[in-house]
Each structure stands twice: as C-alpha cells, then as structure tokens.
Amino acid sequence: MSRFSYHKPKTIDDALQLKNEKRGAVYIAGGTDVIVQIKNQELRPSALISLRNIPGLAHIEVNGGARIGALATISDIIQHPTLAQAFPLLMEAARRIGSVQIRNVATIGGNLCNCSPCADMALPLLVLEAKVRLRTSETTREVPVEDFFKGPGESCLLSDEIMTDILLDAPDVNTIAVFMKKGRVKMDLAVASVAVLLDMEGDLCRKAHIAAGSVAPVPRRLREVEEKLEGTILSEQTISEAQKIAKSSVVPITDIRSTEDYRREIVGVFVKRSLERALEWSHK
C-alpha cells in the first residue's frame, strides 16, 4: 500500500477543512472501492479523510418519503425496519450488491460518489427520482440523481462538497417495481442491470420510469423506452417494441466483464421481462 495519512474528523465542517488543507486528500467512506484503487495504484492519495466517524451521517429516516444518510451502509439499508416497505426496489438492489462483508461496510453515498457505470444503488434512485444533498461549509444544494453522474468516475460533486443525504419523496402507492441484474456470478459487478417503475391501470401504462446500468458511461434513464410506453396498453407487441428501443438506445462497451453486443441483448431482455412481470402483477 502506498503511504498516506489517515484522518477521522468528527464533523462535516472539519472534514471539509481537512480536504481544503491537504493537497491530494481523498474522502473514504466504506473503502471498498477506494482501498482497492489504492492497492492497484489507480489512486495515490496523500491523505484519506474518513467520513465514518461523523455522527448522524449514517442515519436513515422514513417518514412517508425517506432521508438516507450518505454513510448508511448497504446492510443498514437492508436491515432497516420500514425502508423496505416503502421502497422495495432499494432493497432488491441493495441485496444484490457484493457479499455480506462488502455490504457491511460499503455505503450508499460511496456507491454513488464512486460514479461507476454499474453502480447498483443508482438504478432504484434514478427511477424513484431521488435527489442527493451536497454540502459545502457554507451552502447546501439538492441535485437529482440523474444529473449527479457526469461520466465514469465523474460527478457534479465539487472538490469542496460532501454528499450528506439521499432524499426520496413518498412513493406512489400504485406503482409496480422490478429490479434485474446480471452478473457473472451473484456477487459480481453487473454485466447489465435494469430497474423499472410503472404506474399501471389494468393494462394501461400511465407512467414509466426505466433505468439501466453498465450500458452507458453513467447509469441512466431510458427515456426513449419510457416515452414509447407511457399512455399505451402493454401487450406482446408494445413490449417487444420497447425491447427493441431499449437495445438500440443504449451505448455499452466491451470490457473485461462482457461485450457490447451481449450487454445490449441483456438490457433488451430485462426490459421485456420486467414489463411482462409488471403486466402479470397488474392483473393480480
């Protein structure tokens, strides 16, 4: 491991001040990405500023909507007594992240700030239209998750900002949610993943929010598919059209985990299966 100093500030203001003072300093939350990047010499920080000891930053509050502290671990989210009931999609994505050991330390804020195209927690947050709260020593702003990601490893987070919370509005009661992820093995990073949130009235799709991961530089909404579906009756034909649009609207790459073609195929299939499942549920 390269050498760095390690700091454990107790307040957000102290963390921001340290970051400002120490050239080459990097924040660390759960460390499941940062430590690996340091080991692989992709990151050579002069200092790590830990956000793990700031009281309140891991707090989860459910009150119709929800406020999830950026430092809440994936296990905190899974084990929360009421969060799953309000946002089952969050739970499904959380359960598919890594292993127990990873989920016990990895944080939701870290998953977002790492800005991987395959960030698992991003998909439910995208379709739920969540916002992230970003704080400097003087200002606070709220940014839709959709606008947070700028590219692989890049976000709109400024160097003097810390993500403090993830904010969710109260969910619509009649929505149907599906999350699908394909990894090489279960605990793997996604080859491709899809989250779907539909407002259905019988077979009529009133509103569709669909997001996909690992098939573009950032996790993103599939707007073309949504537009095709909204206001239409879900049928074999519309579902198959949605599948085609999904396949052609994504821009995956070939890398160590999969190929461009396969990812395209999988996203199409996931959109199709999610819609079929939603249709099945709406009949119940």
Binding site: Y6, I35, V36, V100, Q101, N104, V105
Partner: peptide
C-alpha cells in the same frame, strides 16, 4: 463480518 484487507486499521 468484514474483509480485514479493506478495513483501514485506524
């Protein structure tokens, strides 16, 4: 359970 290889000693 945590991976001690990813856990900063401090």
């Amino acid at each position: 359970a945590v991976n001690s290889c990813l856990y900063p000693a401090p």
